[in-house]
C-alpha cells in the first residue's frame, strides 16, 4: 500500500474536530457503520437463502398444506393468503430475536468490540441503538424480500397491504430490544437457546400464524392477546386482506408501540449496567 500523505495541519484539524463530540444520533450511526463494515464482507452469502427461504416457505406451508384444508378459514380466503401475512410478522419477530441475540452476546463475550467501543466517545445507549439499527436494517431487508414473494404469490388483496411491511418491522423491533436487553446480561449462549425454544417457538406456533387463533382453547385467548406477536400478525393480516379498520389499527399499533417503549428502556438500562460495570 502506498504511503498516504496528509498534511500535519489537516491531521491536527481532524483531531480537533473529533474532540467535539456530536449528539446521540451521530454516535449511534457510527456504531451502525461499525456493523456495516463488519457484515459487508458476508452479506452476499445470505442473499440466496433470504430469497429462497420465503419462496420455499410459502410453497410448502401455503400451497402444500393449503391443498388439505377444507374449512375453518374466514370466508373466501385461501390458506396461502391467510398464512402469508402471519408468517411475515412471525418471521420479523424471529429476525428481531436473532439479531438481538448472538450479535450482542458475541460483542460482549467473544469479539470484545463493545469493550473497545466504550473507550471511545460511544456511550452504552449509542452502542445499543447502533446495534439495533443494524438488526432492524437486516430485518427490514428480509421482510421486504418476503413481502415481494407474497406479492408474487398473489396474497396481497388490498392497497393497504404495503403497510404490512412497516408493521412487520415494528413487530420485529418489539422483540429486538428486549432480546438485546437479555443478551447483554449473559455470559454464555445456553440461555439464548432456551429463549429460542421456550419463547420464540411457542409464539411462532400459537399466535394465530398458522391457524386462526379462534381455534385455540378458550382459556388461551387472553394469553394470545397479550403477546405482541398476535397484534402484529392480526394487523398484517387485516392489512393484506383489506379488513382493517381505524379502531383495530389503533389498538394494535398502540399496543406494539407501548411494548416497544418498554423494550427500549430495558435495553438502555441493561447496556449501561453491563458496559459501565455497575452490576
Amino acid at each position: 500500500m502506498s504511503t498516504e500523505t496528509i498534511s500535519a495541519a489537516a491531521s491536527a484539524e481532524a483531531t480537533e474536530r473529533s474532540r467535539r463530540v456530536p449528539g446521540g444520533l451521530v454516535l449511534s450511526w457510527r456504531q451502525f457503520l461499525y456493523w456495516y463494515t463488519f457484515f459487508y464482507r458476508t452479506w452476499r452469502g445470505t442473499v440466496l437463502s433470504a430469497i429462497l427461504g420465503p419462496v420455499m416457505y410459502l410453497t410448502a406451508m401455503g400451497v402444500g398444506i393449503g391443498t388439505l384444508i377444507t374449512h375453518g378459514l374466514p370466508d373466501g380466503v385461501t390458506y396461502l393468503s391467510f398464512i402469508a401475512p402471519g408468517v411475515l410478522a412471525a418471521m420479523a419477530m424471529q429476525n428481531g430475536i436473532f439479531e438481538g441475540s448472538f450479535t450482542v452476546l458475541g460483542s460482549v463475550k467473544w469479539a470484545g468490540n463493545y469493550w473497545a467501543a466504550v473507550n471511545t466517545p460511544q456511550r452504552p445507549q449509542d452502542i445499543m441503538f447502533g446495534t439495533a439499527m443494524q438488526g432492524l436494517a437486516r430485518t427490514a431487508g428480509m421482510s421486504t424480500v418476503f413481502f415481494c414473494a407474497m406479492v408474487g404469490f398473489g396474497t396481497t388483496h388490498s392497497p393497504w397491504s404495503v403497510l404490512a411491511l412497516p408493521v412487520a418491522l415494528l413487530t420485529g423491533a418489539v422483540f429486538l430490544f428486549p432480546m438485546m436487553a437479555f443478551s447483554i446480561t449473559l455470559d454464555s449462549d445456553q440461555p439464548l437457546t432456551v429463549v429460542f425454544r421456550f419463547v420464540m417457538t411457542p409464539l411462532f406456533l400459537f399466535s394465530g400464524t398458522f391457524f386462526p387463533w379462534q381455534q385455540l382453547p378458550e382459556w388461551m385467548h387472553p394469553i394470545a392477546f397479550i403477546t405482541p406477536l398476535w397484534h402484529g400478525v392480526e394487523l398484517c393480516r387485516e392489512l393484506t386482506l383489506g379488513t382493517v379498520t381505524a379502531t383495530s389499527a389503533a389498538i394494535h399499533i398502540g399496543y406494539l408501540l407501548v411494548a416497544l417503549a418498554g423494550g427500549v428502556a430495558l435495553a438502555r438500562r441493561n447496556f449501561s449496567r453491563r458496559l459501565y460495570l455497575h452490576r
Binding site: 374449512h71 417457538t201 406456533l205
Partner: peptide, 28 residues
C-alpha cells in the same frame, strides 16, 4: 444445563400441539 434438555424435549411437542391439534382442526 437441564433447562436445555427440557426445552429441547418440549420443542417438538409445541409443534405437535400447534400443527396436529390447532391446524388439524381445519384438515379432514
Amino acid at each position: 444445563m437441564w433447562l436445555m434438555f427440557l426445552t429441547g424435549a418440549l420443542e417438538p411437542v409445541f409443534y405437535l400441539l400447534s400443527l396436529g391439534v390447532g391446524l388439524g382442526q381445519l384438515i379432514p
